[in-house]
């Protein structure tokens, strides 16, 4: 060792590497603190859309129709009953014309009268008996007829019912076939229309939420814009097609639309067709 070696050439080991690692560590920690500690993301709470649906736009079920005609045959069956009473008066009517002929000769007349009386009484009895019998017969016949009629009516009713049912079924089947298509189409249309309406409401709400109304705005002016959209819903361009007359407000609406990018688009392709690639947008402040 050189004793003359000057102190100025002396070195001393310095933990440079350790210090460097620590310095980097401090910065990394600070960066992490900044990134995770402070919420740099301005997250506007997404507007919550609630659609209140009473029920789905229902198409009347085709099966419901046929049962309705069924009650109708009953009125048709009821009328046959009233014709039953008339036969009674018809049976009594022949009696009166006999009486005037017996009053012309006295003696004969009396005997005859007696006889006739007896005859008549007999006849009356017989007639009564006959009548009774006839009535009973008639009643029986009536009953039988009624029963028949009833049976017939019921048969008819049943036939009618069956017919109706068959018709109904056939119609229902036909209807079902046609209606299935129509219903599917209309249901789909309704669904698409519903989705479209829902998304129009959502887009309006989003744009409205982003609109900063100029302070000098009066009334409720309408702005129409042509918004060109990418399929993802991102706004490509906005063009005012009908100004509200207030350029500041027009500007605010255009900015709001741009700021609302991406617009909420429906997942359904048909529904999306109403929005992409161009959307005519009507905006009112209130």
């Amino acid at each position: 060792m050189n004793p003359r070696r000057d102190a100025r050439f002396l070195t001393r080991s310095v933990p440079r590497f350790r210090a460097g690692v620590l310095a980097l560590g401090v910065h990394a920690a600070f960066a992490l603190l900044l990134v995770f500690g402070v919420s740099w993301q301005v997250q506007q709470p997404a507007p919550v859309m609630v659609d209140v649906w009473d029920a789905l736009p229902s198409i009347p079920p085709p099966r419901a129709a046929p049962p309705q005609p069924a009650p109708e045959p009953e009125p048709d069956v009821a009328p046959p009953e009233p014709p039953a009473p008339p036969p009674k008066p018809a049976a009594e009517a022949p009696a009166p014309p006999k009486a005037p002929d017996l009053a012309l000769e006295k003696r004969k007349a009396e005997e005859e009268k007696k006889r006739a009386e007896a005859e008549r009484q007999e006849a009356l009895k017989a007639r009564q008996a006959a009548e009774e019998k006839a009535r009973a017969d008639a009643a029986r016949a009536e009953e039988a007829r009624k029963a028949r009629e009833k049976q017939a009516a019921e048969q008819q009713k049943r036939d009618l019912l069956r017919q109706f049912e068959e018709e109904g079924l056939q119609r229902a089947e036909q209807e079902a076939g046609l209606a299935a298509q129509a219903a599917a189409a209309s249901r789909r249309q309704a669904a698409v229309a519903g989705v479209v309406a829902q998304h129009i409401a959502m887009i309006s709400a989003k744009v409205r939420g982003n609109t900063r109304l100029p302070p000098d705005l009066t009334g409720n002016p309408e702005v129409r814009c042509l918004v060109k959209l990418l399929p993802t819903g991102e706004v490509r361009s906005v063009q005012v097609t009908k100004s509200s007359g207030n350029p500041a407000y027009d500007d605010a609406v255009v900015r709001a639309i741009e700021k609302s990018s991406p617009l909420p688009l429906p997942d359904d392709r048909d529904a999306r067709a109403s929005f992409v690639p161009e959307l005519s947008f009507v905006h009112r402040p209130k």
Binding site: P15, R16, A19, G20, L22, A23, V26, H27
Partner: peptide, 18 residues
């Protein structure tokens, strides 16, 4: 500033150890 900060922290630690 990031460079200055890194360097100053490096020196801070070196001086601290020294």
């Amino acid at each position: 500033l990031v460079g200055a900060s890194l360097l100053s922290w490096w020196f801070i630690f070196i001086k601290m150890f020294a």
